[in-house]
């Protein structure tokens, strides 16, 4: 039997979530009544073992193992729970914050390593794109036409009277400067290192 020791339930995890920049103002985390409405509208819950209500319960129970639990990566970020919660809690935001906590460690970084190219493209063009890690998969699932479309994109855009998608040089430099100072560039470097290590071991 588990003993709930005095001083053990400190709400530290809940507090760190509530005070995170990603959390909505007045996030109702502490007010959760475990009614399960979040779960009843959750697409991940209807197709996997994921249960948003249980996520909140574990956060309130100070269950730190949640951060390294794969279950948090099942959320769709569709905000359905967020939009119906009767106490203005948001499991969607909680998951976002938990995943950020997870990314502080190598295991978490591995989860997002394949999305690295989005960041690279952003720095290069000022516009994100579908990470090329997945591109072959996409063509396989969608069809060759999709590849054709990508090749002819500029022509099609011209036909539609639309200009280039790439930002002017000066502005790209500004964005690079900004993202360097916000720490984003370093963040990418860190992810790249983990990704490389993983590829090397493979």
């Amino acid at each position: 039997m588990k003993t709930l020791k005095i001083g053990e339930n400190t709400f530290e995890l809940a507090d760190s979530i509530i005070n995170d920049l990603k959390a909505s103002e007045n996030l109702g985390l502490l007010k959760c009544i475990q009614c399960g409405m979040c779960t009843s509208v959750c697409p991940a819950a209807s197709h996997t073992d994921y249960d948003p209500r249980v996520i909140v319960k574990r956060v309130l129970d100070e269950d730190d193992s949640l951060i390294s639990d794969d279950i948090i990566w099942n959320c769709f970020y569709c905000y359905s729970c967020h939009s119906v919660c009767p106490v203005n809690n948001s499991v969607c935001e909680i998951n976002q914050i938990l995943r950020q906590k997870s990314i502080e460690k190598v295991d978490g970084i591995r989860k997002i390593a394949s999305f690295l190219a989005y960041g690279d493209s952003f720095l290069e063009l000022g516009i994100g794109s579908i990470p090329n890690d997945f591109f072959n998969e996409l063509i396989k699932d969608i069809g060759e036409e999709y590849f054709e479309l990508k090749i002819h994109l500029d022509d099609i855009r011209e036909e539609l009277g639309l200009g280039t998608i790439i930002l002017p040089e000066n502005d790209l430099n500004d964005i690079k400067k900004i993202l360097k100072k916000t720490g984003f560039t370093d963040r990418l470097t860190k992810i790249r290192r983990v990704k490389k290590d993983e590829e090397d071991t493979r």
């Binding site: 009614c35 399960g36 409405m37 779960t39 009843s40 509208v41 119906v84 009767p86």
Partner: peptide, 8 residues
């Protein structure tokens, strides 16, 4: 009795 608030 079922404890849960229905979604839809």
């Amino acid at each position: 009795l079922i404890r849960g608030r229905p979604g839809d």
